[in-house]
Structures are given as structure tokens and as C-alpha cells.
Design a binder for these strands. Structure first.
Lengths: 138, 138
DNA sequence: TCCTACGATGGACGAAGTCCAAGTCAATAC
DNA sequence: GTATTGACTTGGACTTCGTCCATCGTAGGA
């Protein structure tokens, strides 16, 4: 088990069976799950868990900065890899997502003259294209 | 009136009152409307237009590359400014969106070693922060 | 062990988007 | 101008994704 649960407990997060299961599901597989997928995997471990709780917990983890919310298609996806800056490569055909790690901070690419007085805090970069399988399929 | 309608006609787009109205709505205001906002403005000009037609037409314009789909919040937004490369600055407080035009093509920032065999065709960059109003409100 | 405030539940609700069978019409041919 | 036809439109049902809320349960401190 990673230290995600430790970190959360250390930040005063009240630990419940439900929250633990959701955190474990996210922490366990470094893929990008939708809320429904998280619910399915959580239900496998704790059948009584409710949808509202999964949504609540995911929202809290995002607020705490432990998980990143990614909107690439219809449903939001949740990325547990929040501790290392990275970007996403999304297949327009099948929706597959891969993490990529280019160098440089995209935030620095935005000059003050283009900030319109905004307090800019983050930059998301999403590359779109076709994965090898979808490229082959035409 | 711009040449959007001309371009579409030239590409063999069958012109109907509904499609013309949707294209005019998008072309008229350089803001980032949701599908429902497009429907509302279109309905003002052509009361019988249906929601399905607005969605269909928006989808076609996106496929044709005349409009860009932007997913920044709950609902997708449609950006008619597809002919000039640009990026988006989004307020996390109120959802306002501004176009920004930094130099350089973000696609070149992704080395081949990070492409995993994908045929990469586009890069979207979204800057997030607080607009001046929301910054002031704390 | 008891208290209590915080968290979980589940079912209703709402927003955004898709689908489909039937009707309509733009563009072409005559 | 009329006929033809296949593409376009309609509207309402349906699906998916997400939120809300009143009520119940329980983690963690006293």
C-alpha cells in the first residue's frame, strides 16, 4: 500500500471504510478511471458503498490535490498521478489515455501580456491523435 | 456576413435554414457558447428548430474543422475561431473563457520518444486560474 | 462507553447529450 | 415548373453523468 492513506490521515481526513476503498482503488492501478469505474471496483470490495459517496470522495481527493480530474470525453476521469507533473495523450478513436512527460513548464509559455489580469495557476496540455491500433484500423 | 457559409456551401454542404442559422449564431459572436446557448439563440431566429438538429449541426461543423469543441466544465463549448491557432484561459471561479495566442506550436514540444506510436494531430492547452473579478472576491 | 459532528446512504432529481421512426425539403434532372 | 430522391429535420423517449437531500450510521475524542 502506498502512502496515500497515510498522507490523508495526516491531513486530518476522517478515515472510513468507504474512503479507504476509493483511495485504494485509485492508488492501485495507474490508469485513468471514470467515476463509474471507480464505483464498480469499489463495490467489488465493499458492496454497500453508494454512488454519492464515490462522487463525494473523488471530489474531496481532487480538492486536496491528491487526484487530478481529466475531462477528455463524456465522463470525467480521475488520475492518481498528481504528485508528478505530466500531460495526457488521448486517442480520438478509442479514448485511450497515456501519460506523457515532456520537459519544461507550459505555464512559462504564457507571457504576462496574454494573462488579462488572471491569476494563472495551472496549465493542462492534451495531445490528441490516434493510437497504433486505431491508426491501423483506419 | 462572413465567408463561413460560402466555405460550407463550397464544400458541398446542403444548405438548410436550420444549418444557416446555427452557423450564423456561431459566426456572429466570438464567444464560446454551449450547445444550449446555441439552441436558444437559434430558436430566437427560427422557432421551430430542434435540439437534435443543433447537436447534429455542431457535430458536423466540428468534423469539418470549422468549429472547435472545448471541454472545460460540465457542458462542451463551441469555438468558431478555428482558423487561427489559439489556446484557452479559463476562470476556475466563474467559468469565463478567454482566447490567448502564445507563440510556438505545442505539438513540437512532444518528442517522438513520448508518442507511443500515436499519430498525434493536435495539442490543446488550457490555462486555469482566477479572473480579475474572482481574484478580487477572494 | 458515550456523544456528536461528520460521513454514508439511496432514491429522486437535473443537465447534457443521443437515438430513432416518420415527415420534410434542397438540389438535381427533366 | 414539376417530379424525384436522398439527405436533413423533428420531437420525444431514452441514456449517461452527476448532484441533492433527508435520514441514518459511525469514527474518534472526552
Amino acid at each position: 500500500m502506498s502512502d496515500l492513506l497515510e498522507r490523508l490521515r495526516g491531513r486530518g481526513w476522517r478515515m472510513t471504510a468507504q474512503r479507504r476503498v476509493v483511495a485504494e482503488v485509485l492508488d492501485g492501478e495507474h490508469v485513468h478511471l471514470t467515476a463509474d469505474e471507480v464505483l464498480a471496483r469499489a463495490t467489488a470490495r465493499l458492496p454497500e458503498i453508494s454512488r454519492a459517496t464515490v462522487y463525494n470522495t473523488l471530489g474531496e481527493l481532487v480538492t486536496l490535490g491528491e487526484v487530478i480530474e481529466v475531462s477528455t470525453g463524456r465522463a470525467k476521469r480521475y488520475d492518481p498521478n498528481a504528485h508528478r507533473p505530466h500531460q495526457h495523450l488521448v486517442c480520438s478513436g478509442c479514448g485511450a489515455i497515456k501519460d506523457v512527460h515532456p520537459g519544461g513548464d507550459p505555464l512559462t509559455a504564457l507571457p504576462d501580456s496574454e494573462r488579462y489580469g488572471f491569476t494563472v495557476s495551472a496549465a493542462e496540455v492534451t495531445y490528441r491523435g490516434l493510437c497504433p491500433d486505431c491508426t491501423a484500423r483506419g
